[in-house]
């Protein structure tokens, strides 16, 4: 492999699916902000790309530095683990959304309190009902 091919592959893997990812993240951030400002939801959440857990990787995972789908709770005082579990259930119970995230290269879902550091990570492949289709 020459240096040109290496660089091309590197750029491709870095940019692959980026626009789709940014679109979904900005949509979600706008919706979270809207619901927070109108008073319908008391937590302000922000979605971003983070590093994933290599133990949660699957065939469609992108590079580990950008395979995490992170939801950060900005006003996280008195954020309990049970609340994190409940927030995660809205994502993990929706198999269509889990598959959508996996197709975009995400493998880890992380929900984290911004200042308290309360955090939990989930392997997306566990919730997609695709067990028999995975090699690893």
């Amino acid at each position: 492999m020459n240096i040109k091919t290496l660089l091309t592959n590197l750029i491709n893997s870095l940019l692959d699916g980026s626009f789709e990812r940014m679109k979904i993240i900005s949509q979600m951030n706008a919706a979270f902000k809207e619901y927070f400002t109108t008073g319908e939801f008391n937590r302000l959440c922000k979605v971003s790309i983070s590093q994933g857990n290599s133990a949660f990787a699957h065939e469609m995972s992108s590079l580990w530095i950008r395979s995490g789908f992170k939801i950060s709770v900005e006003n996280d005082s008195s954020l309990r683990e049970s609340e994190i579990n409940e927030l995660s259930a809205y994502i993990t119970d929706n198999a269509a959304f889990v598959r959508q995230l996996m197709a975009m290269g995400f493998d880890t879902l992380t929900i984290k309190g911004k200042t308290t550091g309360v955090s939990k990570s989930y392997a997306l492949k566990k919730f997609a009902n695709l067990n028999q289709y995975y090699i690893r």
């Binding site: 919706a31 929706n94 959508q100």
Partner: peptide, 10 residues
């Protein structure tokens, strides 16, 4: 589907 996820949370 992302819209449905956030609507569900709220």
């Amino acid at each position: 589907e992302s819209t449905n996820v956030i609507d569900s949370m709220v």
